[in-house]
């Protein structure tokens, strides 16, 4: 029983680790899409920033510098996305796709040019990374039943970026629903004409939104390569950006439900990892691939309106043309 409990607690702990980049990207997606800009380039921006973070950490040794550079690179690509979709009214999906493909090619190309390791970056030492923060009394508390295990395993022992991800949900919720900026941002995604009539620049609002999205994706990427992992591996995002997109839709473009969706998807991934190779009676080995595909299947079912309805912001995907 105690063993099973520990297994459960460890799975919850793993859930949080796996969900962190999803949470950051889902919040990024919420900012962008709430302003009316579809962002399927979460994946590409995360990949680019993961690469940047790992490269800077390997070359200069400072995780904070690495995080800063990752965020800047991600925001530059957000600007590109904005330049194409807002300034030139290009197709938002095509622009996002271009960034994703560009990211796949660029990270490996530049990686080989700098490190000559087939697109990987060197393995990072612990001082080059964000390491786990053990909260006070975690070891002493471990012996207390139930709460102690939870405190020592789930709450303690995470790196800084996990906490930032959780904080980002609170901030997103506050900014979107408690500030004038948030009200305007949401209005721009629903009825840009109204915002324009009020004398606020739709273009500027949308640029700000995509830049915030880039900022958050940058943290997510840095988490992958210099906090959760210890270096960059080609294609290391492996579809996480799209899962985050699914979580955002699942959470109806709202921060807290999106957080829950991220945790649910993270839990599925954590449990699939734990069940790898476990034999199930009558079924043979556990079909973990089928567990991993659940986020995508559930999103399709949700979007089709079989379980509730996901209604996107009304003006999403439509470039705003100011009347003259």
């Amino acid at each position: 029983m105690a063993e099973l409990w520990l297994q459960f607690v460890l799975t919850i702990d793993a859930t949080l680790r796996v969900a962190t980049p999803l949470i950051l990207c889902a919040m990024a997606g919420i900012f962008s899409e709430r302003s009316g800009i579809i962002d399927i380039s979460l994946e590409g921006k995360m990949l680019l920033s993961a690469f940047t973070a790992a490269s800077v950490a390997a070359l200069y040794g400072s995780p904070f510098l690495a995080l800063g550079c990752a965020v800047i690179v991600s925001m530059l690509f957000s600007l590109l996305h904005g330049f194409a979709c807002i300034t030139h009214r290009g197709n938002q999906v095509i622009s996002g796709l271009a960034i994703n493909i560009l990211a796949s090619g660029l990270t490996v190309t530049v990686g080989i040019a700098i490190f000559a390791q087939g697109g990987q970056t060197p393995f990072l030492m612990s001082e080059q990374r964000f390491s786990a923060i053990t909260l006070p009394f975690a070891e002493t508390a471990r012996h207390i039943p139930v709460f102690g295990t939870i405190y020592a395993e789930v709450i303690s022992g995470h790196n800084l970026l996990v906490w930032i991800a959780l904080l980002s949900v609170v901030i997103t919720g506050y900014v979107l629903f408690r500030t004038t900026f948030g009200l305007r941002l949401r209005a721009v995604g629903e009825k840009p004409e109204a915002v324009d009539t009020a004398g606020i620049s739709v273009t500027l609002m949308r640029y700000q939104a995509v830049l915030i999205a880039g900022f958050l994706c940058g943290i997510a990427g840095a988490y992958l390569s210099i906090a959760h992992g210890a270096g960059f591996v080609r294609e290391m995002t492996a579809g996480k950006g799209y899962i985050a997109l699914a979580a955002m839709i699942f959470g109806h473009w709202r921060p807290v439900p999106a957080l829950l969706a991220c945790l649910m998807f993270g839990f599925l991934e954590a449990i699939a990892a734990r069940l790898q190779g476990v034999e199930v009676p009558f079924l043979g080995p556990m079909p973990t691939d089928l567990i991993l595909v659940l986020p995508y299947v559930l999103t399709v079912i949700l979007l089709a309106g079989f379980i509730g309805r996901a209604v996107p912001p009304r003006s999403i995907g439509q470039p705003y043309i100011k009347e003259r």
């Binding site: 194409a84 979709c85 030139h88 290009g90 271009a98 960034i99 493909i101 796949s104 090619g105």
Partner: peptide
């Protein structure tokens, strides 16, 4: 992978831009 990069750029210039 250079080709992948060119592909991304082509999608960008002849699609989004």
């Amino acid at each position: 992978e250079m080709v992948l990069m060119i592909q991304g750029l082509i999608i960008l210039f002849s699609g989004a831009l």
